[in-house]
Amino acid sequence: MKIMVAVKRVIDYAVKIRVKSDKTGVETTNVKMSMNPFCEIALEEALRIKESGFASEVIVVSMGPAQSVDTLRTGLAMGADRAIHVDAPATLYPLSVAKILKVLVDIEKPGLLILGKQAIDDDCNQTGQMVAGLLKWPQGTFASKVVLDKEKQVATVDREVDGGLETLCLDLPAVITTDLRLNQPRYATLPNIMKAKSKPIKKVTPQELNVEINSDLEIVHVTEPPKRKAGVILSSVDELVDKLKNEAHVI
């Protein structure tokens, strides 16, 4: 079985973002970019499944401008076998990503498609569900545990839901999206970073895949959230209790 993992290049999670002064978006030039943290977890899970002997190959896929190749190299350095770069504009919405992924799945025929549960830039939380719908595959979203049964060809997935955990059993092939607690992603070691340079990255375009990219969403503008007015540092518990009672009226 092959596993396909979708990874996204996003502004590094530790960066404090700045909204552009013309309100067209968020400043991305000269800003540190990395692999979306949920995608790292998705790739780690695929690698662990391969190491346990269930999968023969892990393919990483990324969509976006030329710099997405850096993210794919990171994935190869972590241990993916090969990569596919879909050369596309930076502003792809999840529906387009899902359509492209569907075509790639039709070509590569993986037994499992793993994605992060959401990208930390657009915070959409849609792509995995959408591609599962397009493929008519079952979905295990927000996974915190994945157990594969080789004989029965099923995946048992624990999902993080409001109010607890839910366990599902999915027939393979299936789509899984990863939550934070699924695993701790590994670091790429220097020898593996060197090795990754010789691993193949195939480049395709949406046109070659016959996917038409037309968007039904338009970003009108991006603004900063309203600032909270500066608070005060109090000196004692008595003062706090007094303020909560007599100034804020919340207790």
Partner: peptide, 18 residues
């Protein structure tokens, strides 16, 4: 209007589809 980047920006978006 929806928050993006962990609520560090607000995005106004228009749906133009069917």
């Amino acid at each position: 209007i929806r928050p993006i980047y962990a609520g560090n920006a607000l995005c106004t978006v228009r749906y133009t589809g069917l």
